[in-house]
């Protein structure tokens, strides 16, 4: 619960830095918090960092696309702040730390984990945006005819 609140703050405040309309701030925060919850629970279930990030990215993109539909705003508004909590900041930091300690093997391991997480986020977004893009174009076509 404590982490849920923190993740909420961790998306709400970057949203202020990115100048989001006030009424959308809470939703962006909520989106980030739910994404963090998905990340944590998947991580506990499967013990896999990268898979957890992937699931969280999917949950976040789905939520943001749905919110974008409901509030009629671009989905970017929700995406960017709510992906903040699952960005692999800590493993990137550890990579640098290992490089400085000249522990190349550990650095390579952490670096790969960072790259994998970033790739997982990218792929999660890609899958969901493709699906929603298909739905959107399909709707437009059926309306036009």
């Amino acid at each position: 619960m404590k982490e849920f609140v923190l993740a909420f703050l961790g998306s709400y405040c970057p949203a202020i830095l990115f100048n989001i309309e006030r009424k959308n701030l809470v939703w962006a925060g909520l989106c980030g918090a739910i994404g963090w919850a998905a990340y944590k629970s998947t991580q506990m279930l499967t013990q896999s960092e990268i898979f957890a990030v992937f699931i969280a990215a999917i949950v976040i993109s789905m939520l943001s696309e749905i919110m974008a539909k409901v509030f009629k705003t671009p989905s970017t508004v929700f995406y960017i702040p709510s992906l903040f909590p699952i960005v692999p900041g800590i493993s990137a930091y550890n990579t640098v730390l290992y490089i400085i300690d000249k522990k190349i093997a550990e650095a390579a391991y952490k670096g790969l984990e960072t790259l994998g997480s970033a790739g997982a986020i990218a792929f999660g977004i890609l899958v969901i945006s493709t699906i929603f893009r298909y739905i959107n174009t399909h709707n437009i076509n059926s309306k036009g005819q």
Partner: peptide, 8 residues
Amino acid sequence: TINLHNIE
């Protein structure tokens, strides 16, 4: 820069 409000 980043200014999502302008995009909206």
